[in-house]
Design a protein around this nucleic acid. Structure first.
Length: 151
DNA sequence: GCCAACGTTGGC
DNA sequence: GCCAACGTTGGC
């Protein structure tokens, strides 16, 4: 079992949306590194921090669980869809997604500024300048440390 | 809204 | 295969 961090813009889909719907396909990822992790590495039962990006206080807001491992993202071959990519077809899918389930919402957001200030987290891609990966692995030590910052 | 950093595309 | 142009991400 592995740990992850997954970013989403709360204006588009935030932790409250996930709490409401309980399970959601994590579709629309159009980045190869992130795709590879969803397609090849994420397993059912894995846990991930839910990160809010592009908002007033960016940071970690809760925990989600991978409830279905990687499978083709069919929004890519729907011409009507925002995430349409004509290069992806059912026979040769280019993009993948996982299904995520709501696990827990922290009482308070753990702000990016606090994560950046923690020496224990200095290796996380999240706090490295210019990193834009929307899905990244989290080590067990980082996971435990961040959990200790919550609530 | 600005803009730095980065990934992708496409001409050559 | 190089690299300039372009689009996107995402903090601030």
């Amino acid at each position: 079992m592995s740990y992850w961090l997954m970013k989403s813009e709360p204006d588009v889909f935030g932790i409250d949306d996930l709490e409401r719907v309980r399970v959601e396909p994590w579709e629309g990822v159009r980045n190869y590194q992130a795709r590879n992790m969803m397609r090849d590495e994420m397993q059912e039962g894995d846990l991930a921090f839910f990160y809010h990006s592009n908002c007033k206080v960016p940071g970690i807001v809760g925990i989600l669980r991978i409830v279905r491992a990687g499978y083709p993202d069919d929004s890519a071959w729907d011409p009507e869809h925002t995430y349409h990519d004509p290069r992806s077809t059912p026979d040769n899918p280019r993009w993948y997604r996982v299904d995520v389930g709501f696990e827990r919402k922290f009482r308070d957001v753990i702000p990016l500024a606090d994560l950046k200030a923690a020496p224990a987290l200095s290796d996380m891609p999240l706090v490295r300048r210019g990193n834009r990966l929307s899905i990244m692995p989290v080590t067990e030590a980082q996971w435990e440390f961040i959990l200790s910052m919550a609530d």
